[in-house]
Amino acid sequence: MPHDHSDHPHAVLPSDPALRVKALETILTRKGLIDPAALDEIIDTYQNKIGPQNGARVVARAWSDPAFKAALLADADPVLAELGYYGRQGEHMVVVENTPTQHNMVVCTLCSCYPWPLLGIPPGWYKSDAYRARAVREPRGVLADFGVSLPAETAVRVWDSTAEVRYLVLPMRPAGSEDLDEDALADLVSRDSMIGTALASKPDEGALT
């Protein structure tokens, strides 16, 4: 119950957009169009359960198991679904493999389509106009900004995500990682290496992001 006689300072007023979101939530709940418990579940999932560690496990397995990798590259959806990673929006996942002759990089020029089940919510820079515009126009310049320089003979291919198709980069397995098991390999796989704006870390470096 609100205190109508209080001299205490009142609760901190949320920002205008925060109040508008609260209003939408109230209206839609009253109309039975949403269930607040379902909202909490979605937030908990994306805040705490889904993140780049999912993609890193897939990459580490692909590095360790040639049959798994072949199946993943041929048709990722059933392979990922078996691991429990499937798109809630019904989108298809495509895994693109980095090789000495081709480096892959992922962007969404439309908005910010991203392989949520494998990488979680995209970082701010992925959603920025600067990245979305420059990744296609000058991918090598963007890679340089991320501290990545590729040999001249390596072509850069940029994959533009859509509502229907989301891409995950399978980075090259770093030298010196031959003896590592899947858990140790997964530690070398950063989020950015699966977007294509970084390479997998070498065993003595550890994953940066």
């Binding site: 949320p14 920002s15 957009p17 925060a18 979101v21 609260k22 939408l24 939530e25 839609l28 169009l33 949403i34 269930d35 379902a38 909202l39 909490d40 979605i42 937030i43 994306y46 805040q47 993140g51 780049p52 560690q53 890193a56 809630r88 929006q89 979680g120 919510i121 970082p123 701010g124 997964a186 530690d187 989020r191 994953a207 992001t209």
Partner: peptide, 25 residues
């Protein structure tokens, strides 16, 4: 041990409006 270093959402209302949209979809 290798969870994401940055929060998924910078502000609570970002998470709320994201969840509202996903839920409606």
């Amino acid at each position: 041990s290798h969870s994401a270093p940055e929060p998924a959402f910078l502000e609570p209302w970002h998470a709320q409006v994201f969840a509202l949209t996903v839920s409606l979809n």
